[in-house]
Write a protein that binds this DNA or RNA. Sequence first.
DNA 1: ATCATAACGTAGTGATCGCTATAGAACGTG
DNA 2: CACGTTCTATAGCGATCACTACGTTATGAT
Lengths: 183, 183
Amino acid sequence: MTGRPRTFDRDAALAVAVEQFWREGYEKTSVAKLTAAMGLSPPSLYAAFGDKHRLFEEASAAYFRRTCDAVDRATALPNTRDSVARMLEDTALAHTDDTTPPGCLMLTEARLVAQREDLHRRIRERLDQGVQDGDLETSVHTDHLASFLVTVMRGMSGLARDGGTTEELLSIADTAMAAFPSQ
Amino acid sequence: MTGRPRTFDRDAALAVAVEQFWREGYEKTSVAKLTAAMGLSPPSLYAAFGDKHRLFEEASAAYFRRTCDAVDRATALPNTRDSVARMLEDTALAHTDDTTPPGCLMLTEARLVAQREDLHRRIRERLDQGVQDGDLETSVHTDHLASFLVTVMRGMSGLARDGGTTEELLSIADTAMAAFPSQ
DNA sequence: ATCATAACGTAGTGATCGCTATAGAACGTG
DNA sequence: CACGTTCTATAGCGATCACTACGTTATGAT
């Protein structure tokens, strides 16, 4: 007993929801906007994704996974300074990519605190590794430095939403690197 | 023909509105929440302040004036580095003052782009003065440095909203100062 | 006292919010 | 074919949104 098959691509619809939440945030994104953008009726949305909150969780998780891929590519660089510089440059470029909404869902949406803490942890762990590798002096407070970096990225996301250009964000990334402790 | 006098203090009611918008933002603050917090009926609110949008404009303008006072006190310091350091420290303290909502209304509310541009201009002008005073080398790109500083403050506001402590924000302010060009 | 003026509280406007009851349509299985 | 299952679309649920019509009350001026 398989029943009637669904007429829409669940992953494609989820991608549209990601884009919608990304562009307008959780609160300003109504279910009516979602159903219109995703091209399905309210009952179909609720049957496939639960409710608005669970859809947001699934969408933001998908977004987070994509972001973490980029972070992981940066942290994989052998030199710690290069790794952090890459991360900030990636951020500047991603937040002003004109094929996607400006800024970053994870860094802008108030309720995604846990994701931001996860990002902070990933960065701190990369810095800790840098200390072990001898890239950073043992006196460096990696937790505080990670907080600084997340704070800069977050501010960059806000600036991108205000219409900040790629060049502007890249210059901020560059300036922030001046605060990175030299070996 | 003076008519019946109003039974509430307009300035006090406005201060309550500032606090409400500060704590929850424009979208999440309903007129019902405002009337309850301000202790007046909807018709009184609309008679005294126009509509929700004009009330927000008045409230955010009052908030901005207060913020600018602190900025002006910092920019008044003779040394440019001291001036910027003070600004960042003030930001860390103000955003985590437990007698007020966490973070900053101006830096968090999406629609206050103009106020942020104003803040950016004030900081850049202080840095330009620093160049004239010989506090900063003429090679310093004051516009980019100002963008960096606003970006850090903005990120600090977000962190404060996530529950970041005064110590955490102060350490970020301190780290950011490492990016400030030495004389 | 009488009047005009303006703020007051009650009660409710249409629109939109997130969400769902209901009934019909499209599948695999008998 | 009929049956059970699951998706579909329509239409609408109660709650809340920003906002206001309306009748009352409190003032100063006459």
